[in-house]
Amino acid sequence: MIDKLSREINENCIDQAIQTIEEIGEKKVNEAVPYLIEQLELTENALIKNSIALALADIGKTEALEPIVKQLKNQKQKVTEEHY
């Protein structure tokens, strides 16, 4: 499933990637957590970032908490900068 997601992200197949990410979260695929965290930090696509954050929350691994909070802070900072 991780290989499939990697292909979808690399080929910019956003809708399919989001669907795969949601499936990973629903199935609580623990092995995907390191890859999801990596993609959360690397991707610029807000839809993929949000889907990854939700999937990580669904999986419930504590190591995902810090990267999710970091992304939320970054997102808040970008919004604040855009308004000033």
Rank of each mutant, 00 (worst) to 15 (best):
E81F: 07
A64V: 10
I52G: 07
Q39G: 01
V29K: 06
S6V: 13
S6K: 15
I37S: 01
A64W: 08
I48V: 14
E44G: 08
K4Q: 07
N12M: 11
Q71N: 07
I18K: 09
N10M: 11
L72F: 06
G60T: 00
Q77T: 10
E22W: 07
H83S: 15
N10Q: 09
P34Q: 03
A64H: 06
L72C: 11
E82F: 08
R7I: 00
E82C: 04
L42T: 14
E22F: 06
A57M: 01
R7K: 05
E66W: 01
E8W: 01
E26Q: 12
K28V: 14
A53D: 05
K4R: 07
T62P: 03
I37W: 08
K78M: 04
L47D: 08
L40Q: 11
N50Y: 04
Y35P: 05
E31H: 08
L56E: 09
I52K: 06
E26V: 12
K49V: 11
V29Q: 09
I14G: 06
Q19E: 15
S51R: 02
I2E: 13
D3M: 03
P34D: 08
K73W: 14
A46G: 01
L72K: 06
I68M: 05
V69A: 04
E38M: 14
Q71P: 02
E44I: 10
E63H: 00
M1T: 01
E81T: 06
N12C: 11
L5I: 06
E63Y: 00
E63C: 00
E23C: 05
I52L: 09
